[in-house]
Design a protein around this nucleic acid. Structure first.
Length: 732
DNA sequence: CGCCGCAGGCTTTTT
DNA sequence: GCCTGCGGCG
């Protein structure tokens, strides 16, 4: 049999991993070393060469994007088809299991997924209902605690109270929340995983079935697994499953949300005979970029050890720009992007990576001024937009009347005269009699004490939902969607009420109808017995819907370092490299967190293919205050041979009173090279000429050395402050 | 019911 | 500095 398509595109290390005899493997795959390729080719190898049925293979990723990519590439490599192959996210797979075995999992058939936002709202109501003070017991904090417990596999009863009254209250909230979710048929994200785990723990026959079926498990981004995900993998593997995990301990950047890098080492202990393979050859970046990356990450202790190498050339040095302030930083970056585009590059080949979202604004403004198209990653997901969630809440109620999260949202959006008092009456009845809001409405209508007007409004609402549900039997999904948007009066509501945003909200609602029209239930969904509607609602909860409706053509890419993981760009700007920003202030006190920041730096550096530009600002307005941070310690961890100081061409003659500037920083570390600046220094009182402002006299300067700003009194244009290095001044 | 003004807070994010 | 969320008022 010809398997050349499977092994020819591989280097020796990749080939060793792909063609390894069945068994347990830990593949340590450095950045840009072709890990997706190894995973997909491994699947191809198992099916085409080892004659393993696709039916016994389960491949797990973290994001839908990664799952989609893997599926796509696997299909190309498996001419005999991928029937029965499961590729999905942890959550997607857990969801599928719960749909198929809802009875055993103790769920109603119509259970729905509660997203993070709905979860917080629900918790808020529960905290209120328990008579607790919201300020003392913030819903967001409760959500974080509960999710953390679930990620550790803990139910309320399994948490030791330790006579800690605050903890006891938190557990009470947890227990109440669980009861509420159970009654409403709601499952949050962490619950999907926890239930799927318990499903197997409590049902030997199911576990046996899946163990017999999935003999081959492949896990992507293994360093990001949390306790529960790892437990789930171990449980499924049992004594017979062959586990092939791919990951990079140096790219573990999600410890703060429960990921356990330790799982990587734990894997070697838990799976006897597991072999470690390393992919260290990098196909992405130039030599200099890799030298910098290797040097920075080498400062982390306790690594499993990997050294990226490449056969491509050293390439350009990394540019280091010490900006005067954050404005100067933005301006510099945009200038460089313009230059790159002038030289034949594309906007979408440029990425600006920052530590914190708040940093994006300045770059956005600068890009807007220059009319350069850009895209900011990580905004609100399509399905998380208010108008979308409003519309979907009606469909959710049609699918499951007891979905209280949907009820609370739909009942008064748009406003229909059902006030807070009425709702409170319903909530307390629900609490007392353990009823869903829907049933509480029925009970009130049948003999409650509410005012006639409130009852009439509730009756109208209930009737609307019933009617929509009745009509839906005869309609396609898209028609149902359109019908709901029309009949709920959401459309009219947004037309009248969304000041300034009406247009985009209405557009999004239209797009939602389009999305519904394009939506196709997967064969797996069908198999699991999901209706078109249920499948669509699950899709809305589990998938970002990023691609929906928006065209991103040739845009400069702006994103956090976290969102950049897995991506690559020819030209990368790593900005805000200042101690306190990156590494962030909050990670400075704790060694472990600092190491995670360093891994984040490693991720950032290794996103660049051709050219990496590093920036920091000597002063920065941050949270409304002027701050003066020293350059990031990660900069000083890079060897001077790969760094090149970007310096303005002109220097102020008088030495600065401040010690901290680019030159002195670099000099301290022996990084200053290149000697003196070519242009004669500018002195106070010098006559200078500027291309557009004309002639003038230097009257003042501030800032340090090469990055000083000078004040010039122009004969015709008045007094101006200019950044020396970029003003292109000629001394007369 | 909806608008406005003020106070507090503030790393990172997927599902 | 900007966004969120809350409370008060019309």
């Amino acid at each position: 049999m010809d398997v050349s398509h499977l092994i020819d595109p591989l280097n020796p290390a990749q080939r060793e991993a792909v063609c390894a005899p069945t068994g347990h493997y830990l593949v340590l795959a450095g950045a840009g070393s072709g890990k997706t390729r190894v995973l997909t080719h491994r699947i191809g190898w198992l099916t085409e060469v080892e004659r393993v049925s696709p039916w016994s293979i389960l491949a797990v990723t973290f994001t839908n994007k990664a799952a989609g990519e893997m599926r796509h590439r696997a299909e190309q490599l498996m001419p005999s088809g991928t029937r029965g192959l499961w590729i999905g996210t942890f959550h997607g797979i857990a969801h599928r299991l719960l749909r198929q075995h809802w009875r055993e999992a103790g769920l109603p058939e119509t259970f729905q997924i509660l997203d993070a936002d709905d979860q917080t709202r629900l918790l808020k109501r529960i905290i209120n209902g328990l008579g607790l003070e919201e300020a003392r017991w913030p819903a967001r904090q409760a959500a974080a605690l509960i999710n953390g417990w679930k990620d550790e596999g803990k139910r309320p009863g399994a948490i030791p109270v330790d006579f800690n009254p605050a903890l006891k209250t938190q557990i009470d909230i947890y227990r109440n929340y669980e009861e509420h979710c159970q009654r409403s048929g709601l499952v949050d994200f962490a619950e999907l995983l926890l239930r799927a785990h318990e499903l197997w723990l409590n049902h030997d026959e199911l576990l046996k079935h899946y163990r017999e079926r999935f003999r081959h498990l492949l896990i992507d981004e293994f360093q990001d697994t949390n306790t529960l995900q790892y437990a789930w993998i171990r449980l499924l593997a049992g004594a017979t499953g062959q586990v092939f995990v791919v990951g990079d301990d140096d790219q573990a950047i999600y410890g703060w949300r429960g990921a356990k890098v330790e799982n990587v080492q734990q894997f070697l202990r838990d799976f006897p005979g597991a072999k470690t393979l390393r992919l260290e050859r990098n196909y992405r970046s130039t030599g200099n970029i890799l030298i910098a990356a290797n040097a920075v990450i080498a400062n982390n202790p306790g690594r499993l050890g990997k050294q990226l190498w490449t056969e491509s050339e050293l390439g350009e040095a990394l540019d280091l720009y010490a900006a005067y302030n954050e404005q100067d930083e933005a301006r510099f970056v945009i200038d460089r992007i313009k230059q790159a585009v002038r030289e034949g590059g594309r906007n979408d080949g440029c990425a600006i990576l920052y530590r914190s979202n708040a940093q994006s604004r300045l770059f956005e403004e600068a890009l807007m001024v220059e009319a350069i198209p850009y895209r900011v990653y990580g905004g609100l997901r399509f399905f998380d937009r208010m108008e979308i969630k409003d519309a979907l809440s009606y469909l959710r109620l049609c699918g499951n009347r007891h979905d209280d999260a949907a009820f609370e949202r739909a009942v008064n959006t748009p406003p229909r005269g059902i006030g807070e008092r009425t709702l409170d009456a319903l909530r307390s009845r629900g609490r007392d009699q353990k009823l869903s809001m829907w049933d509480a409405v029925q009970a009130e209508l049948a003999g409650g004490l509410l005012a006639a007007r409130a009852k009439a409004a509730l009756r109208a609402f209930a009737e609307l939902i019933e009617q929509l549900a009745r009509e839906h039997d005869a309609l396609t999904l898209a028609e149902q969607m359109a019908n709901v948007i029309e009949r709920s009066a959401l459309k009219a509501h947004y037309q009248a009420n969304a000041k300034g945003q009406a247009e985009s909200r209405l557009e999004n609602l239209d797009e939602l109808i389009n999305v519904a029209a394009r939506f196709e239930r997967s064969p797996e969904d069908r198999e699991a017995g999901l209706s078109e509607l249920a499948a669509f609602l699950a899709h809305a909860a589990l998938e970002a819907g990023d691609a929906e409706g928006e065209a991103w053509e040739d845009c400069v890419q702006l994103m956090t370092l976290h969102s950049a993981k897995g991506l690559e760009f020819p030209l990368v700007f790593l900005v805000g490299l200042e101690d306190g920003l990156f590494p962030s202030q909050k990670s400075l006190d704790e060694e472990g967190r600092l190491q995670e920041e360093r891994r984040l730096a490693y991720v950032g550096i290794t996103r660049a293919r051709q050219k990496l530009v590093l920036c920091y600002a000597e002063s920065r307005r941050w949270h409304g205050m002027d701050t003066f941070n020293r350059p990031s310690r990660f900069l000083s961890e890079m060897p001077n041979t790969v760094l090149q100081d970007v310096r303005p061409r002109v220097q102020v003659a008088r030495p600065s009173a401040f010690g901290r500037n680019a030159s002195s920083f670099l000099a301290e570390r022996g990084l200053l090279r290149g000697g003196v600046v070519e242009t004669p220094p500018i002195k106070l009182g010098a006559n200078v000429r500027h291309a557009s402002f004309g002639d003038g006299v230097v009257t003042d300067f501030e800032g340090a050395g090469a990055h000083a700003r000078v004040q010039i009194n122009f004969a015709n244009s008045g007094r101006k402050w200019l950044v020396l290095g970029f003003a292109q001044l000629t001394v007369l």
